[in-house]
Simulated scan of single mutants.
Amino acid sequence: MKVLSLVERKKEKKLKKYIVDNKEALYRFAYSYVHNEDDALDIVHDSICKSLANINTLKDTDSIKPWMYRIVSNCAIDYIRKNKKYVTSSEDIELDDLIGYDKYEDIDLQRALDLLPEKYRTIVILRYFEDMKIADIAKMLDENENTIKTRLYNALDKLKISISE
């Protein structure tokens, strides 16, 4: 068992509080990648385990949100890569429709988001569905703020075109 320093214990305490306070948002973000309740829960679980195991890599407790979202994003991408060969059966789709959970109210918007390249979709979801600031998104994605703004505006243009068609 690893012994944590006082600083790491404080970080861990803040991280645990953040996770508890934001579990629904983390789940929604994971769900936006996989569109499956169980898979999203698995991704969030893996993300929490990885974040707690790597608490020493968190430089500043004020940046927990972008740091945690980056871990969730990476776990989701890894999960998708590992499970590429998994094909959703029509029974799963019908069951999801019957249960009726986690549906966006505007299905056209959801379809348009799904058509966006991942680098654009992630930024739109973080900005408008998770209410993250541009600076936090830039920090999370390790990009320049102006790059994030440009991608966001490009994504919004693509969404506008896609929805209007």
Score class of each variant (00 low, 15 high):
Tyr33Asn: 09
Ile161Phe: 07
Asn74Ala: 02
Leu95Tyr: 15
Gln110Glu: 15
Ser90Phe: 11
Tyr153Arg: 13
Met140Gly: 13
Tyr33Thr: 08
Ile71Tyr: 02
Val20Phe: 06
Ile123Gln: 04
Asn154Gln: 10
Ala40Thr: 01
Ser47Phe: 02
Asn22Phe: 01
Ala76Arg: 06
Ala53Met: 05
His35Asn: 12
Leu141Pro: 04
Leu58Gly: 07
Asn154Arg: 11
Thr57Phe: 10
Pro117Val: 09
Ala155Glu: 11
Asn56Gly: 07
Glu94Pro: 00
Asp142Leu: 03
Val124Gly: 07
Asn146Ala: 05
Thr88Asp: 10
Leu6Trp: 13
Leu95Gly: 09
Arg151Gln: 10
Arg9Ile: 05
Ile134Cys: 06
Val87Leu: 12
Ile125Ser: 02
Lys84Asn: 06
Val87Ala: 11
Pro66Asp: 06
Ile134Ala: 03
Arg70Phe: 00
Arg121Lys: 14
Asn74Gln: 05
Asn54Phe: 03
Asp157Ser: 08
Gly100Thr: 05
Glu143Asp: 10
Ile163Trp: 04
Asp106Met: 10
Asp136Glu: 15
Asp108Ala: 14
Leu156Gln: 15
Asp78Glu: 10
Asp39Ile: 00
His35Trp: 12
Val3Asp: 00
Ile161His: 09
Lys13Ser: 14
Glu165Val: 13
Val34Trp: 06
Ile19Asn: 01
Ala40Gly: 01
Tyr33Lys: 10
Phe29Arg: 02
Tyr104Gly: 12
Phe29Tyr: 14
Met1Lys: 08
Lys13Val: 11
Asp39Val: 01
Thr150Trp: 08
